[in-house]
């Protein structure tokens, strides 16, 4: 009896072995003859080391060498120059601050806005420090900028989520936003004609979505770039997106600064006290209801 069991076991082992061998690819004995051409091996090594370098590696290298620095330079020089021209040609809009004032931003909104503003400003400054690091000599100073960039990003991400929640209803696109865009919000004329806009105009809505949704993309790509634990092509794509979108965000940031500080006289007070003068609301936010 023992012998039968043993032989049955042996048979099964052999059968299992054969089945296992059958699933594996056959070793090509013929290819063992004669040396493999080195060029075939080189191709495989290239795949292992350089991968898709020609696709994203070269793209990233070219963009970083020729384009990104220029884009950031133009955004922080040409854009303020254009806004200065606007200030000289059209000038600031001013509204009477003596009449009735309307509550626009409650205390919580203002607090979140200024928290986000503080860390967004830090993000812009430290981001530019990395982009123009060679003029600062690199080293400890720019390294510190990079560290501040990472910490600020963490805090700004939190405030961006809260801003998204408290303002999303007022920031949804409306048909009258197209009309606002056609007349550029009335900023190209000196007249005080009512402009089609609700609580927020189309420009503010664009800035809001770039800062929150775009900020989300910046956070994800930034996280990938910080941890570095991703395929090299993912890192390259993230760096490309982070740079392009970063330049766009800085552009909107500069326009936002110009609008609140210079284009409408005293408009920054609405984010400090929470109140806007009635005349300003009637003209610039004509469709706003309580």
């Amino acid at each position: 009896m023992k012998r039968y069991i043993l032989s049955a076991c042996l048979l099964m082992t052999v059968a299992a072995g054969l089945a296992f061998a059958g699933t594996h690819e056959q070793v090509q004995l013929l290819s063992a003859f004669g040396p493999e051409p080195s060029t075939a091996a080189f191709k495989e090594f290239n795949a292992a080391f350089t991968g898709d370098w020609q696709q994203y590696g070269q793209t990233f290298t070219n963009l970083q060498t020729t384009l990104f620095g220029k884009i950031f330079l133009y955004v922080i020089t040409l854009l303020p120059a254009a806004l200065l021209l606007h200030f000289i040609a059209i000038g600031a809009k001013s509204f009477s601050h003596t009449g009735k004032e309307i509550l626009f931003f409650n205390a919580f909104c203002r607090f979140i806005h200024w928290l986000a503003a503080l860390f967004f400003t830090l993000l812009v400054i430290t981001g530019l420090m990395v982009v123009f690091g060679k003029y600062l000599g690199g080293g400890a100073l720019v390294s510190m900028g990079r560290s501040i960039h990472i910490v600020s990003a963490l805090i700004f991400s939190g405030t961006a989520v809260i801003m998204l929640l408290i303002w999303i209803k007022d920031m949804l696109p409306m048909p009258h936003d197209i009309a606002w865009l056609f007349i550029m919000g009335g900023y190209l004329s000196k007249q005080k004609k009512p402009v089609p806009a609700g609580k927020f105009n189309a420009g503010q809505k664009m800035w809001f979505w770039v800062a929150t949704a775009g900020g989300g993309v910046m956070a994800v790509t930034g996280y990938i770039l910080f941890t570095f634990q991703y395929p090299t092509d993912t890192l390259r794509l993230s760096a490309i997106i982070h740079s392009f979108l970063g330049a766009g965000l800085i552009g909107f940031f500069i326009i936002h600064l110009y609008m609140s500080l210079f284009a409408i006289k005293g408009s920054i007070k609405s984010m400090i006290t929470g109140y806007k003068p009635e005349e300003e609301v009637r003209i610039l936010h004509s469709k706003y209801k309580g």
Binding site: F49, G57, Q64, V130, G139, F228, L235, A239
Partner: peptide
Amino acid sequence: CIGCGYCFMACP
């Protein structure tokens, strides 16, 4: 060096 990692992305 500030450890930004751009060289790694550019290197084949």
